[in-house]
Amino acid sequence: MIAYWMCFILFLVGLYGAITRRNLIKIAISLSIMEFSTFLFFALIGYIDGGVAPIVDPADPVKIYVDPLPQALVLTAIVIGLATTAMLMAVIIRIYRKYGTFDIREIKNLRG
């Protein structure tokens, strides 16, 4: 049960960063930390004690495999996470070239 708790604390750290920081890079980092904790939670759910990695060995068919379904879900989510991070970084670099800062307060003040 302690692994679930540590995973939840990692999610909360990411949430805290996303709410309290005022720097766009820090917000992007916090979002990816929350993503990582979700991936870890899925992998934790699928784990079975004494299980082996879900790769079939024809010579030894009687085995316990860990759950392959959460792993397939996370495999999809990791790649989509890369795509969203790249897009976020593209937006951030445009904002930096226009305003010369990563600070969202100053960007708000410069408006108008």
């Binding site: 990695a53 495999l75 990791i78 996470g81």
Partner: peptide, 14 residues
């Protein structure tokens, strides 16, 4: 450690 080698490979690249 959680017996997910596919995820480990993809995650290290990403």
């Amino acid at each position: 450690l959680l017996k997910a080698p596919d995820l480990a490979i993809v995650q290290i690249v990403v």
